[in-house]
Computed example of a mutant assay.
Amino acid sequence: MLASVTQLIDHAGDWALARLADGDRVFPALVSRDRVLDLCGSSALGSPRDTGDLLDRWDDVLPVLDETARTADGWRPLAGLHVLSPVEPRQVFQAGANYRTHVIDIAVAHADGSDGRTVEQVRADAVAEMDTRLQHPPYVFQGLPSAICGAYDDVVLPLDGQQPDWELELAAVIGRRARRVSPDDALDVVAGWTIVNDLTLRERIFRRDAPALGADWLAAKNSPTFLPTGPALVPRTAVPDPSDLRLTLRLNGEVMQDESTKDMLFDVARIVAHCSTVATLLPGDLVLTGSPAGNGLPRGRLLRAGDVMDSTITGLGAQANRCISEQD
């Protein structure tokens, strides 16, 4: 188990920030490959109780974390510890339809020919829609923190869910309270990055009883465990440029998603800036940046109990989540 967890939590830079559990005790820690350093007793860091305590003071504690990683004693093996989500956000912002190829694939998958358009026309209309969208703000909605689970936890498929699908995404972790930040300055309020898998019940996105009301993201996105997050927060200093990171998701060993963040319609800075014009961003908040092509619905292959999703993003480690039925 140690070898697999070490591989999954491998990350860019000398250290990453994690939330770990040793039995009932939860503590913030630095992670460096197969070693962890408990930060609870660090007087230099103000004896933080959780990663949220550090994110509230991120600009001040970042150089201390660097120094601690280089000089501190007391590292212990990662083996035997439970890796939790690295953050407990107060707010979760989720960008929708933000990868060009993904938008086209979903449009084609939902097309039933009832409007008389051919597949080629549907594709052309989707491309034209993206060109138009670039003249307007990104499309962002909110998720619930209660959907979050750890990077290696089981994903529970709801008994009444019919089309559970995967959506691997890069997430920005906010490290500074921010309101109306410009796109040029938006990355300055980002503490770092983490991996999320923003699972979706496809059949619940659009309600047939009220089609004029639009997407029902509450029902589609927020089942418990539908947002595996982590394994760690990799500081932005270790991955300063998110514009060309590779996202890869395998289902039972078969590659399903494999795309670069280059395919984003709106870049990370634009999404963060937009969120800050609508709401006040708080330290520890998650800003999800959309999912690339390769989801299950266009493939006609959705999640079933027993499936295992293995997900990686360049420099951020990896996730491994097994799907189980709610009745189990």
Score class of each variant (00 low, 15 high):
residue 221 K to Y: 02
residue 276 S to V: 03
residue 244 D to C: 03
residue 198 D to P: 15
residue 275 C to P: 03
residue 286 L to Y: 09
residue 266 F to A: 11
residue 249 L to G: 06
residue 267 D to R: 06
residue 285 D to T: 12
residue 286 L to I: 04
residue 225 T to V: 12
residue 291 S to F: 01
residue 251 L to E: 11
residue 309 M to Q: 06
residue 227 L to R: 11
residue 313 I to N: 01
residue 243 S to G: 08
residue 212 A to S: 15
residue 236 R to P: 12
residue 294 G to F: 10
residue 301 R to N: 05
residue 272 V to L: 01
residue 207 R to A: 15
residue 250 R to H: 10
residue 256 M to D: 10
residue 221 K to Q: 02
residue 292 P to I: 12
residue 231 P to G: 09
residue 311 S to G: 00
residue 294 G to H: 04
residue 287 V to W: 08
residue 242 P to V: 08
residue 272 V to D: 03
residue 211 P to C: 10
residue 309 M to L: 10
residue 267 D to Y: 02
residue 224 P to E: 12
residue 271 I to K: 11
residue 268 V to Y: 13
residue 206 F to H: 15
residue 317 G to I: 00
residue 256 M to N: 03
residue 215 A to C: 13
residue 264 M to I: 12
residue 264 M to K: 14
residue 272 V to I: 09
residue 253 G to F: 02
residue 212 A to L: 13
residue 304 R to S: 13
residue 260 S to K: 00
residue 252 N to S: 03
residue 266 F to Q: 02
residue 263 D to T: 15
residue 198 D to T: 15
residue 228 P to A: 05
residue 315 G to P: 00
residue 199 L to F: 13
residue 197 N to C: 09
residue 297 L to V: 11
residue 258 D to G: 06
residue 203 E to Y: 06
residue 229 T to L: 12
residue 216 D to E: 08
residue 252 N to I: 01
residue 229 T to M: 03
residue 230 G to F: 05
residue 253 G to S: 01
residue 257 Q to L: 13
residue 262 K to Y: 00
residue 242 P to H: 10
residue 228 P to T: 00
residue 218 L to M: 13
residue 193 W to E: 08
residue 206 F to S: 15
residue 242 P to N: 09
residue 276 S to R: 01
residue 235 P to Q: 13
